[in-house]
Structures are given as C-alpha cells and as structure tokens.
Nucleic acid binder design. Sequence first.
DNA 1: CGTGTGACGCGAG
DNA 2: CCTCGCGCCACAC
Length: 108
Amino acid sequence: MVDNEGKFAELVCALVAQIPAGRVMTYGQIAGLCGNARASRIVGGIAHYGPVDLPWHRVVNKRGGLASGYHGGRQAQKLHLEAEGVTVIGNNDNFFVNIDELIWAPNK
DNA sequence: CGTGTGACGCGAG
DNA sequence: CCTCGCGCCACAC
C-alpha cells in the first residue's frame, strides 16, 4: 500500500471524510493516524485553510470540546452534531460532546 | 525558500 | 475539572 505519501492534508481530509455521522474524532487521533501525532495543530490548520466540504464539525479536541472558528459558527457545529444524534452540552461558545462515548476510530 | 501562525497535545500545578 | 507553559510540524503568504 502506498501508505502516507506525505500528503498529510490529503490523509486528514480522507480520514475526516470517513468519520461516520454521530461519531467524533480528536485532532490528536487524526494526526496520529496520519502519521504525525504531534501535528495535531496541523489538522486544525488544514481544516481552516483547507477544504470546507468536509464534516469538520465531527472533529473535536480531546476534552470533547468543539473547535473554534468553525465555518459558519460554533453554534452551527452544535446543530450539525445534534442532528446526527450527538448529545452536545454547553452554552454560547462552549460546546462539549460525550467524547468517551462518541469517539470513533477507523478500521472499526 | 523563509517567516509566521495555528480549529492542539501533553505534563505539571 | 481548570490554567500555565512548551513543543510540534505542516500549511499559507
């Protein structure tokens, strides 16, 4: 298999695109699966600078908190998750999900 | 090609 | 759980 060619962004995009509805992944996990567990920030960078056609709203940080600056607003992100059956807790700009229950991983 | 920056992670308190 | 601080590496300009 070609594995990761160094196309970090490509892998991240592919992985995010594979996240099933009602599930979430952490930046660190995605980064790790892409080959660089320390590149967690890069994942966020790609999300912001990169394509907008991916379900970034399913990507959360390890605390289960939704990211900042989501394309459309954090509240939109909350709505997307709830629409997929995810329990989102929080107010205003602080949104959290049951990461321990909703965390997902590929090959599974 | 160099610089800056970031939608983060983790350890320690 | 929170905050503080450092590291991390790819992407945008």
